[in-house]
Design a protein around this nucleic acid. Structure first.
Length: 318
DNA sequence: TGGGATAACCGCCATA
DNA sequence: GCTATGGCGGTTATCC
């Protein structure tokens, strides 16, 4: 049975966010080894839904399409007015959640989850432009305005626009492994992974062009993850002092050099667990984490599970 | 699991 | 006066 993904298309549907979910889960990529998804674009009724771009789209399903969905995506909620989210929308989302669906929001879609009471006492994020309003309206929610997305499985929230891509790939990676997520990312011609904790505000994006010292250093590091790499090594590659390198790295990537490196090493371990039969010890060595014990610590922190159970879950899809 | 050695991080400050 | 840089040292994280 393919996963059923239902997008809740509300009036003033943001086209980009709706298209992100469509691109990730609504396109048949079985030729690339990506498992099929049953994709539903659900309006409250079967009537055309007005988008923020002025034109309308005709949903494939009405609200009944949320029934038995594995994942419900709320790509937006028009935040220009202070009208409360209508009760029938909250009810529909609540019923889907109670029936076992996981719920994900992009950008201002978080207001729909909040109005349904799903986020009380939980962490959540939204586009930085909406963070103040969200905090004001729903003080029970721990709003993290600085991250790309928040995973509070079975609830997910993202900053919207490009961060919606990151959240979709994160959920796909969680459910189907990094090989599948990377295949989708490759087809979409987007970077395979940005960590959820990465800052929404980056002064300049990480880039591998030759005249970007941070890009040069990170590209160099990714090619030799199996070797020892110190922040001083990275700084030397970037032709900067360690202090300046660290400062500019945080400005560019929204995280510290070591934390970035550890996440890259765990991603490499995920790839090796899925695509090889190497021992966990050997994988730890090949991804630069030294020992299996060390790999387990960082693997649990980044992925939320153990290398062995990760392999048991995803080896089949490789 | 605990502890010690080492590296990384970051605020502060001086300098260019 | 403003900004970027880089050294110092206290604190924290990582690794074995």
């Amino acid at each position: 049975m393919p996963d059923i993904v239902a997008v809740l298309a509300l009036d003033m549907l943001p086209m980009f966010e709706a298209a992100v979910a469509t691109e990730v889960w609504g396109v048949d990529r079985s030729d690339a080894g990506v498992p099929p998804f049953e994709f539903r674009m659900c309006g409250m009724t079967a009537d055309p839904v007005v988008t923020t771009s002025g034109f309308s789209i005709v949903p494939s399903h009405d609200i009944e399409g949320l029934r038995n969905a594995d994942l419900v995506v709320v790509p937006g909620w028009h935040p220009a007015h202070d009208d409360p989210v209508p009760a029938d929308i909250s009810t529909a989302v609540n019923e889907a959640f109670d029936a076992g669906a996981r719920i994900a929001s992009f950008c201002a879609g978080v207001f729909v989850l909040a109005a349904a009471g799903l986020l009380d006492g939980r962490r959540a994020t939204s586009h930085w432009m909406h963070a103040d309003r969200l905090t004001l309206m729903y003080p029970e929610i721990a709003v993290d305005r600085d991250v790309l997305y928040v995973d509070e499985d079975p609830l997910f929230t993202s900053a919207g626009t490009a961060a919606a891509i990151d959240l979709c790939l994160h959920i796909t990676r969680k459910d189907h492994g990094s090989v599948v997520a990377n295949r989708i990312a490759r087809r979409m011609v987007v970077p395979p992974h940005r960590d959820g904790g990465q800052a929404q505000f980056v002064e300049s994006p990480v880039n591998a062009v030759d005249d970007d010292p941070i890009g040069v250093a990170t590209t160099w590091a990714l090619r030799r993850l199996q070797h020892d790499i110190t922040v001083e090594d990275l700084a030397r590659r970037a032709k900067l002092s360690p202090r300046t390198f660290a400062r500019r790295f945080r400005a560019a990537a929204g995280t510290t050099p070591l934390q970035w490196l550890l996440v890259q090493r765990v991603r490499e371990a995920q790839r090796l667990l899925e695509s090889t039969a190497l021992s966990v010890d050997e994988i730890a060595s090949r991804c630069g984490l030294g020992t299996a014990a060390n790999l387990r610590i960082h693997f649990a922190r980044v992925v939320g599970t153990t290398p062995t159970s990760y392999r048991a879950t995803f080896r089949r899809t490789a």
